[in-house]
Write a protein that binds this DNA or RNA. Sequence first.
RNA 1: GCCGGUGUGGCGGAAUGGUAGACGCAGGGGAUUCAAAAUCCCCCGAGGCAGCCCCUCGUGCGAGUUCGAGUCUCGCCACCGGCACCA
Length: 850
Amino acid sequence: MTRYTPAEIEPKWQEAWDKAETFRARRTEGKPKYYVLEMFPYPSGRIHIGHVRNYTMGDVIARYKKATGHNVLHPMGFDAFGMPAENAAMKSGGHPKTWTYDNIDEMVRQMKPLGFGIDWSRMFATCDPEYYGQQQALFLDFLEAGLVYRKNAVVNWDPVDMTVLANEQVIDGKGWRSGAEVERRELTQWFFKISDMAGELLDALEGLDDWPAKVRLMQENWIGRSRGLQFSWDLTEPTHGFDKIEVYTTRPDTLLGASFLGLSPDHPLTKALETDNPDLAKAVAQMRKGGTTEEALEKAEKLGFDTGLTVKHPLEGQPDIPVWVANFILMDYGTGAIFGSPAHDQRDLDFCRKYGLPVKDTFVALDDPAPVTDTAFIPPKTEKVKWLDHFAGLDVATGQEAVDTTIDWMEARGLGTGVEKFRLRDWGLSRQRYWGCPIPVVHCDACGVVPERKDNLPIRLPDDVSFDVPGNPLDRHPTWRDVDCPKCGKPARRETDTMDTFVDSSWYFARFTAPHAVTPTDMDDAAYWMNVDQYIGGIEHAILHLLYSRFFARGMIRTGHLPESAKEPFDALFTQGMVTHAIYQTTGDDGRPVYHYPEDVELRDGKGFLKDGTEVQIVPSAKMSKSKNNVVDPMDIIETYGADTARWFVLSDSPPERDVEWTASGAEAANKHLARVWRLAAEPSDEAGSPEADEALLRDMHKTIDEVTKGIESFGFNAAIARLYAFTAAIQKSKAGAETRRLATRTLGQLMSPMTPHLAEEVWALTGGEGLLAEADWPKADEAYLVEDTVTLPIQINGKRRSEITVAKDLSKEEVEKLALADDAVVKALAGGQPKKLIVVPGRIVNVVV
RNA sequence: GCCGGUGUGGCGGAAUGGUAGACGCAGGGGAUUCAAAAUCCCCCGAGGCAGCCCCUCGUGCGAGUUCGAGUCUCGCCACCGGCACCA
């Protein structure tokens, strides 16, 4: 008896596909195109089982679309700039470039045996000068189109290492290497004007029907459109050239409850006051400690400083209120100043309680007029509340009505303006780091900021750099930095900031349509291949990467690099879950957990034991992490079971949007199943069969074709696979004749081919298929086999299933009622009485209420 | 803290508001075998009743809508993703 041998089968078919150039993306007439893209990987050096799942899903779609008559584009590349390469260089010497390209080679070497139908001729890495040079060209066009500008923004500053830190390098408010308390410091930085498109990016979400609703909702909340009132408070005594303070509020209706006016520590007035008020300067310095993340700012203890200034209340007869500087007020949002209305905002309330400021209710619940104590009263804006002595004449109204009425009232009196604002901030793209795309501008004393000339692109990163000192090596590079001004030719200084790696990933999908073009894109190719028909990636990119890409597509249209139709570059989006793995741990002598490798643990009856018999604690479904020793290496799996098993397993056990737990026994089972299918093809039985069995198997086959096709089209891979398990068992048990069984087996292989392409080719060849299966047409279900003529209806009594009847499919409702009432269980339940109600849902269910 | 999501047997999970637990794993029993591996067949939510056809409970917790709720609504709890310099 021969055996299923993936180690022989898989390389053989990969070679055949290569030779036939099966997956080369081609533009041909008469066929629709299909562009499937998985989020490209960071070249960490090893592929991860999560990658296998991601790319397998894409490959299933790609191969299926090819079989259904599409010209498919399914490319692969690397998101290759970023911090890990610099960290590696700092840790073990070497160069980020060498590290990165070695990793890419290694990852490609690991990806190839998985048999993905990828057009490798289009591969690139974002750190290729051919790529980032075109990115620089895009930057210059964006600059010219007014989509890029410079302004000050805060960064995490490590005062010991004298360097800017990324958020992940700030741990509990301290620098990761120095341990020094991090400060927020302002720097002049480059920005994309994404806020200009906020309204458009928000409104267009509505058209993204094939995106998950949750992602659209997250983006909607992130962009955060709000309507509020902008107005000013006059200072009782003008100071430092300021006579009033402009505020923006989304709750102008609570104006009577104002008990203080709050300034951001970064507000211009704060900065002016700081110069001659050392106590304020000290307090503000304290407020600037800690990282820049919104989480850190929100969670930080509320700090305030009374400036001693007061402002006049815009409403007549109201007392003046004090001006405070408060750490929880963001300069980036609104005007950087607010009025605090503590009864209806928890942060304001906490602040007022801490500093002894008054708290005044402006409205109360209809059924509970008790004043606010330590919990602010913030009902939904759609709920009616009772207003207390409201200046615009409100009595009982919802929050939304109150806001609108108040804005109208204030506008009518010239006291303020209703304005629309967005939470979305401009996209800061400057990074004070080496391993990124250089920003192609020059700073000249005479000419100011001067864009590089396009013929000087790419501005290449210099290779002779070292990472022994903290900070950006470009900043201290002896020659790279010093250049002649492209405009006047005098000595000038090159911009040493590089671009955020999100820039790299915001247009790579467009570059794949013409990866070798001498301009960022080729408009013909872009027009043909765009948009991405199906984009697949992790939910962690739901906001930033996808929003930035949407912005970039619009920018590229404006600058003539994409056709108008590519405004929303991703037609459909699918967010897949992680692959997890159990953690095996014991407790060490020091009380800390000790993590064990899966291969050192023996599983018996759901418990795990080490070689010496010690029982280990099993933590199921944990995110794979090197430090927890629970990472499974796809290479080991391929070696043990073959690529098809790995591909089959990552799709089989969980719905693709959810996490899947890798288990050795699950992989084993997948492998056994593939071997079973192989045997059906390689060792067919020669039974004579019966016409009835033939008919039954054909019926099952066509139903399977139908269900698997629907499953693949709807990302129901696990359901499709469950069906294929069932069909395999059906063939095994079938008494159908040899010819029918052969057809069924060949079809089974075909239906499995997007998931297990190598095995499928083998089955195809063994069962008399012609040519390469990868080039063959997808099977079609014969409708005639899909219709059933009888249907089994469950009978419920009071909503609980008690019996069932089998009836003709199109039996009338009346007849079904009659049959149901005659059913033994129903007769018994009725005990001679009449049913209170009888519900018949044709083809589904009967419910008798007694 | 804010935004979004998830929660069903021992485990992964299935189920257009209509028979909860498809399919797979683990477990149990059997066939084949000198024996094993491999393969094949059967059973498998909990409890009751003792048996197959019956009853009760059961989809994180608590309410609600409905003839009928895993599915819809509200309130909790736990976990996961994001929070603009991780990618």
